[in-house]
Design a protein around this nucleic acid. Structure first.
Lengths: 114, 114
DNA sequence: TTTTATACCTAAGTATTGTATGTATATAAC
DNA sequence: GTTATATACATACAATACTTAGGTATAAAA
């Protein structure tokens, strides 16, 4: 029998988004992530800073991200990049999410496009 | 500007699943829901009872579900049905979820099938 | 000069879910 | 006949994520 997927009913979609964005972009800073998400979703999805920064710190503490601070126009930016482990984990979590969404579709009988 | 969708980053997917299952089925009891979800997902998704029963009680308290107890083969079953408000709310939450998933796809650039 | 945008951060509260446990009956296995 | 499994409900506690609300600071625009 399959091991039941207890994996968090998607409550961790924020960290997956962060990891996925960094898979494509090499490095990003926190504020940039909030703007990029707004841009990609035409303003419909907003990541709050109160959720984002703790999530970034956690991913860094888990060894999935590394950070380096850089001064740009007199303001300090903290750039994050995926570590080697982070790349692996990003792929893994994306697969988990995809599997969860497929199962969710089965339960909700969503249209294939969703 | 669009009102940002702060709607809970999908952490409430369980209640949406319950509402959606009841949209199609008229009435179900708790244990039946756990089995139906297992069946629909070929055992890959398991709803824990510790999450399910409080969720059902909450939906009932919110007036979205009504419950009636019925004895079947010497065991008491608690059947839940959508109220009129529950039907409306079910449709609303499904729409919210669909919107959220679309935005998630935009951020994650998932394949159309997901 | 004040507001807006940029850029970071944390603390406290809320809400959902998982783990663990409990009760009880019916049926199947031993 | 006893034990294990399936059915069927329930709650308490812990873990965790996210929201709300606030704080600091610089640059640019009004």
């Amino acid at each position: 029998m399959n091991t039941p997927n207890n994996s968090s009913l998607l409550k961790g979609s924020l960290s997956v988004m962060i990891l996925r964005l960094l898979e494509d972009r090499e490095r990003m800073y926190g504020y940039e992530i909030t703007q990029k998400v707004k841009e990609l979703t035409a303003g419909e999805m907003a990541i709050t800073e109160g959720a984002l920064y703790p999530a970034l710190h956690k991913l860094e503490a888990e060894g999935l991200l590394t950070a380096e601070i850089q001064l740009v126009d007199g303001r300090a930016r903290k750039y994050y990049s995926l570590t080697k482990t982070g790349h692996t984990e990003a792929a893994g979590r994306m697969a988990e999410l995809a599997a969860f969404l497929e199962n969710l579709n089965l339960v909700l009988k969503l249209k294939p496009s969703l």
